[in-house]
Amino acid sequence: MDLNLKDKVVLVTGGSKGIGLGIAESFIKEGAKVAIVARGEDALNTAKSLLKDVLTIQADLYDQKDREEVVQIVISHFGTIDILVNNVGGSNGSTTAETDLDLFHEAFELNYFSAVHFSKLVLPYMKDKQAGSIINISSVFGRESGGKVTYNSAKAAMISFTKSLADEVIKDGIRVNGVAPGSILHPSGNWQRRLEENPEKINNFVKDEIPAGRFGTVEEIANVVVFLASEKASWVVGATLNVDGGQSKSNF
């Protein structure tokens, strides 16, 4: 299927590895012009070697000024931003009682406020063209319990933000949607580490908790992202789609 994404300019945050890297690769295969931003120089260099013509930007996405500079670099290089994928994220802490408040602030800064800020930064360019797409990568644990409380709370806020912003800007030709992955296996992810540490435990988790009977892949997330960003999804507005092999217990 031709998604008509050729020459569209895409910015993927947290795009140097894992799901973000897979998303960037899928857009490049569709003929898009892609910029990825991440903090780690080594991972960015590896991504550059894997992805033809990708623009790599090193920045600390906890930092407001760095985020502003990232957008200006992309605009200077490509002239615009058509599609924003807010993918950067991370988990910290443990239980609420045992997690310092500072860690809650850090989790929200990276997982939530970075998405809000990048969205605000690209909106003027999209509004000028009366076209654009923003995709927020959250998690099934933004809808139900599971994982760490800091991460879950930030991803829940992201899902709410996705709907709110979508309703606000659809009149300007900008569609905002989200993808909520379930458990995805990739070399740089936590599930790979856990599988190596305790194969029996993780294999039992897959058997008991994922109806499809396996982990999801990066490509399966990326395929949904590029579809949502395309005009083939023109009537999808404010949705956050579970992509999880049936893992989520939610029925809405």
Rank of each mutant, 00 (worst) to 15 (best):
T96M: 12
A131W: 10
D128K: 14
S91Y: 14
N86K: 09
K127P: 02
V85W: 00
H117C: 10
L84S: 05
L103W: 07
L110H: 09
F108C: 08
N92K: 10
F113A: 05
L110Q: 06
V85S: 03
A97I: 13
A131Q: 12
F118D: 02
D102H: 01
T95C: 10
V85N: 01
V85R: 02
L110P: 01
G90R: 14
N86V: 14
K127A: 12
Y125C: 02
F108S: 08
S133V: 07
D102A: 10
K120W: 02
D102Q: 11
N92G: 15
S91Q: 12
G132I: 01
F118C: 10
G93R: 06
L84C: 11
L121P: 01
D100S: 12
M126Y: 00
D102L: 09
H117V: 07
E106H: 13
V88P: 05
D102E: 13
N111F: 07
H117Y: 11
F104M: 04
V85E: 03
Q130Y: 03
L123H: 02
S119E: 06
L101E: 09
P124T: 02
A107K: 10
E109N: 15
H117W: 05
F108G: 11
K127E: 09
F113R: 09
A97K: 13
A115C: 09
H105F: 09
H117A: 12
V85Y: 06
F108P: 09
V85C: 06
T95I: 04
E98T: 08
D128R: 01
N86I: 10
N87Y: 10
N111Q: 09
D100P: 06
D100W: 00
L84Y: 06
A97Y: 02
T95K: 15
A107T: 09
S133M: 00
S91A: 15
V122R: 02
A131H: 04
N87M: 08
D128P: 00
Y125K: 02
G93F: 08
G93Y: 04
G93H: 04
S119D: 11
K129R: 14
D100R: 12
L103H: 10
T99M: 02
L103Q: 14
L101D: 03
L103V: 08
G90L: 14
L121D: 05
F108V: 03
H105R: 15
S119H: 05
A115I: 08
K129S: 06
F113D: 01
P124D: 00
V122I: 07
Y112R: 00
G93V: 04
F104S: 07
L101Q: 01
D128F: 03
F108E: 11
S114Q: 15
Q130I: 06
L123N: 03
A115R: 08
A115V: 06
N86A: 13
A131P: 00
G90C: 05
E98Q: 14
E109Q: 15
A131C: 08
E109K: 15
D102M: 07
F108K: 07
G90I: 12
P124R: 08
G132T: 01
D128W: 00
K127C: 03
V116W: 13
L84N: 11
Y125R: 05
L103N: 06
